[in-house]
Write a protein that binds this DNA or RNA. Sequence first.
DNA 1: TATGCATTGCTATAGACAACAACAATCGCT
DNA 2: AGCGATTGTTGTTGTCTATAGCAATGCATA
Lengths: 136, 136
Amino acid sequence: MRDPLPAFPGYSLRRAANATAGELASRLSDIGLKQVDASILILVGENRDVTASALGRQLDIQRANMVPLLKRLEDEGWIFREPLDGKSQGLALTESGEAKTREARDIIEAFEAELLERIPPEHRDHLLPALNALWR
Amino acid sequence: MRDPLPAFPGYSLRRAANATAGELASRLSDIGLKQVDASILILVGENRDVTASALGRQLDIQRANMVPLLKRLEDEGWIFREPLDGKSQGLALTESGEAKTREARDIIEAFEAELLERIPPEHRDHLLPALNALWR
DNA sequence: TATGCATTGCTATAGACAACAACAATCGCT
DNA sequence: AGCGATTGTTGTTGTCTATAGCAATGCATA
């Protein structure tokens, strides 16, 4: 079939993102995580007492939609909340959450390394800066 | 906030794809199209009498989910179906569909050009080959 | 030519996700 | 003390995708 679409960077971007996201999702599901879960765990691990709102801003997830996500991570015993004042609550990893986060990091880092290996060496180092120019 | 995530190509890939897809979606909505619609119109335009199944395979959309998509394009008067045999039906653009497709192409091509311009020149030409190495 | 398997188009359903509006409580600034 | 902004939350909606199933047809081959 004639298909001019892959010549469009925007289209290839979407397809590549879908394909790789699918792969990563499959690997993370082995340890019971979705990609969002892993992102949240990593951010909470690096930023003790971050608030749900701040997390949402960083990840471009609306406040309202953070609720079920955090509830699940809390129910699993990976994060807990501690009141910062009468209104805000800080998030932090439990011990089991820290272990889970390390697992997730291992999976992700292995995956990222594989991704880069698929790219011909002459293009490899340009991907990240090019991508970051598109959204940051 | 400390955020190690943008250092992961896979994460940046997803974020860049979301950001750019959102922008393109907004522009395409000006002419009443979603991105899938535009993809389908372009493919049908390049491949007269392509079947719904073949389209789905090319775009990674399941047969069942093509139905409402194509129904809408047909209801809008942009595509029509002609029986190829007793079972398969070929898709083709109407005249108004061809006009709509040209509009979509103009928007997409302008958008893609802008995307590339955002990327520092030394990285620009590496994006497409790097992306295509990830999913094709 | 007849049989069996694959394919096509479609219906119906369920789950995941994101957007949106609204609300009470609280914070922080003036 | 008052007021606008922020936080966490509920509830709802629409969109998208996966899945299973079905009747009809095509295709290959025995």
